[in-house]
Simulated scan of single mutants.
Amino acid sequence: MFVSVFDKKWEDLPKVLKKRYANRAYSDDLVIVDGNLDVHCSWLIYILKPLLKLFNVLVPHQGKNVPVSVSLLSKPDSDVVYFNRTFFFNGRKPYLFYSKMVRIKGDDVIEFMNFGIGWRMRCFYNGKKVVLQHKGYVWKLLGILVPLPLNLLIGKGYAEEEAISDNEFRMYFEIRHRLFGKIYGYDGNFIIRE
Rank of each mutant, 00 (worst) to 15 (best):
Y125G: 10
K49F: 05
H177K: 06
Y26R: 12
K53C: 08
W119I: 09
A22I: 08
V57S: 12
G116N: 06
K49C: 03
Y46E: 11
K18W: 01
K19V: 02
L73G: 04
G127F: 03
A163P: 05
L148A: 15
D107Q: 07
G188C: 01
Y95P: 06
E174V: 01
G181W: 03
L141S: 13
V102N: 07
V138G: 13
D12G: 07
N167Q: 13
P14E: 14
V131G: 04
S27T: 14
V102C: 08
W43F: 09
V70A: 05
Y184S: 00
E162Y: 02
P14W: 11
F112C: 04
D7F: 13
F124W: 08
Y158T: 03
Y21N: 11
S99W: 10
G143S: 14
N23F: 05
F88Q: 10
P147Y: 15
K129N: 09
I192N: 00
V59N: 02
K129W: 03
M113P: 01
G188V: 00
V131C: 13
K15M: 13
V109N: 09
G63F: 00
G155D: 14
L142D: 09
I45V: 08
G91L: 07
G157R: 03
K53H: 05
I144T: 15
D77F: 01
L58A: 13
E174T: 10
D7L: 13
K19C: 02
R24I: 06
